[in-house]
Every structure is written in C-alpha cells, then in structure tokens.
Design a protein around this nucleic acid. Structure first.
Lengths: 138, 138
DNA sequence: AAGACAATGCAACATTGTTGCAAAATTTAT
DNA sequence: ATAAATTTTGCAACAATGTTGCATTGTCTT
C-alpha cells in the first residue's frame, strides 16, 4: 500500500511528505468519506491543523479526492476514482449518507439519472445525496 | 404582503416580532435561496447575529423554510411550499445553483428521479443539486 | 552535497455557529 | 386597559472552522 501511496503522489507531481502520505493512507484505509475533523483526530497531534487544510485542498485540486455535498452541510471528502484528473472531477455518482452510523458511501456503480431542466438552464454537474439506512444498520 | 407575513407567523403559532417579520419578508421578496450572511447584510445592523440564527432555526422547525444542500457546502435556506409542515419537510424537488450569478433556485416542478440503491440500503431522503448556468446567465 | 524550491508550523486573525442570562417585547389573563 | 406570564431579543463569552503571512524545515534537482 505504501507503494501505491507514493505512486499516487508522484503521479500527481506532488512532493512526498509525511502529512501527505499519512492523510492519503487514511483515505485508502477508510471505507467512507472523511471530514477534516476525522483526519485531525486520527492523525493525532502529528500535524498542524493548517497543514491538513492545505493538504486536503491540494488533493482536491489534483483530483485525488473530491468533496461531497451533504444534507447537513458538513464538508466531507472521499477518494476519487481514476477518472478524475487535475481540475476536472468526474464524481458523477450517488453519495449515500447513513442517518444511523453517519458513514458516507460513494455508490460508484449507480449513475445519476438525467434531470430535465427548465428552458434556458444548462447543467454542468449533478450531485445526488441520498440519506437513510445503510446495509450494516438495516 | 404584510398580511400574509403575519398570517404565516400566526398559522405556525409564532409570536409576531420585528425580526421574524423582516426575515420572512426577505424570503418572500427574494427569488432564490438566502444564506445567513445575505440576511445579515440585507437587514443591516437591525438585528443581532444570534437572533438571525435562532429565527432561521425556528422557521426550519416550523416548516416555513428548508435548508438546501449545496455543492460548496454553504448553508442556504429557501421558502417551503405549502406541503411542508412542522417537523416534516417535503422538499423533494431539484435545487439548481448558478455558477455565474450564484443564485439558488428551487425547481418545484421537477420531481426527483428514483435512485436504485444496493441491497440493504434504504433511502429516506434524496437531495439533487444541479449546478450550471441559469436562464438569465445563459 | 549545495542550492532552489516547496511544504510545514506557528501566530494571528476572520468567519460561522452555540449557549447562558438579564432586559425587553409579546402574549395571555384579569 | 393593565398586570402577570411567557417568549424573544441582545449581549457577552465561547467553540469550531477556516484563512493568511512568514520564518523554519524538509524535499527535490543538479
């Protein structure tokens, strides 16, 4: 896994630093999405809060992770699929947030149904956030 | 309009106060959704920040307004249709956010397409946020 | 190994949101 | 209409979240 972490960073022309390795590792280990606070807690006092903010920002810019719009307007991040690249995210999949355990899933296999817009409106991106109970909590 | 404002407050068993009248008026005048900051600016120094927070909270609880999940995770509010009642929101419509002018629209007439979930997942609510260009900016 | 460059940590600050409590306003009862 | 009961407001204080500048440290290039 360490190999793929370093590979990912190199592929995105990012220098290999402790914080980037650690944060990327957290994403690879986590099944669901992570909030800034999750990362701050899971990495202990190892890194400065500001470093985490900047690392997340960098990862989003590079297309390594993407933000997830949530019903409660908390900011969460999840790993992008390979299709994402710098400045252009392809996160056209459904996000599911469990009301019980709070886990956020990226349902990669479910494509977003087309939405008919009124005349004059053009869509660039469509986000679908479903909330309810996940398989574990049901 | 003043009449309907007071009517709305009374119908929801809320006492008639200056801040509630003013904030409800702002929503009725506005075509799109409003963020806390919008309300703070548009009402000048008339009300305390805390009062605005509490008023918005009360309006959400009463089903007068609902929150909108946005791609940039900023909190916005919009008037509910009549179908909304205390503790139970029926905001099952598509939200559109214009990348140019920033206006957020509730597309009341467009219903949310059903989403197929994996086995074991049950949906309680589905939010759809489309971003792109609105009719004015196109 | 040294210089160029980029990332980090720290401090300071801005924004956003929450809570307790006394003062003021609204509603209810007289 | 007035007084009592109840709500709401404003203030202060605090907590959480996010941003910026800059010196120090670490990484990369040659």
């Amino acid at each position: 896994m360490l190999y793929s972490i370093i590979e990912t960073l190199k592929r995105n022309q990012l220098s290999i630093t402790d914080s980037r390795k650690k944060i990327l590792e957290l994403f690879l280990k986590s099944k669901g999405a992570l909030a800034h606070a999750d990362i701050e807690h899971q990495s202990g006092t190892e890194f400065d809060r500001v470093t985490i903010y900047r690392t997340l920002q960098t990862f989003v810019e590079k297309g390594i992770i993407h933000t997830i719009p949530t019903a409660d307007n908390s900011v969460r991040y999840a790993l992008c699929k390979d299709a994402c690249s710098e400045g252009h995210h392809h996160d056209d999949h459904v996000h599911f947030m469990c009301d019980d355990c709070g886990t956020t899933y990226c349902l990669d296999n479910i494509t977003i149904p087309a939405v008919n817009l009124p005349n004059g409106f053009t869509a660039l991106q469509t986000d679908v956030v479903v909330s309810g109970k996940c398989a574990k909590c049901n």
